[in-house]
């Protein structure tokens, strides 16, 4: 995971605070299993260089993640992803909830019964799973 290419692909939007976008990127990487609990993560300076962001922003993102108990830093050793399963579960539901909310918001104006909608979702979901397996 400390491969440069794994980090370089992020592009930031300019209207949300950059540090929050960094936090979100970490959450996505945890939920998708790219980062697993207990894994060490780059230092603030390294991360700033990898993501090409201001070191102060990286510092702020780490502070935020520490406050959310997403990462832990003990003394001078490098920061690690938390081992607390509560926190990890919470991130998972947070991201899922957010994605579904966005989905619901985008189809709200389409007049469709819930059953039909769920059918569509089931079909698309299994198609996506097949693609993933290929």
């Amino acid at each position: 995971m400390n491969n440069v290419n794994d980090w370089a692909d992020i592009s930031f939007n300019s209207r949300d605070p950059v540090y929050l976008q960094v936090v979100r990127m970490f959450k996505e990487k945890i939920v998708t299993g790219v980062l697993h609990s207990g894994q060490t993560i780059p230092s603030r300076r390294e991360l700033a260089a990898l993501l090409k962001i201001n070191p102060n922003t990286a510092q702020r993102a780490y502070k935020e993640m520490e406050d959310q108990r997403l990462i832990v830093t003990e003394g001078n050793s490098p920061s690690r992803i938390t081992l607390e399963s509560d926190v990890l579960r919470q991130i998972r539901s947070e991201l899922l909830g957010g994605a579904v909310e966005a989905f619901v918001a985008s189809i709200r104006n389409i007049d469709v019964p819930l059953d039909e909608l769920l059918d569509v979702i089931r079909r698309k979901y299994s198609e996506a799973q097949e693609d993933k397996d290929d």
Partner: peptide, 14 residues
């Protein structure tokens, strides 16, 4: 810059 993004939802360019 970060304050303007979080409080006003605006980019620096905005």
């Amino acid at each position: 810059c970060e304050q303007v993004r979080s409080e006003e939802g605006k980019s620096v360019v905005d």
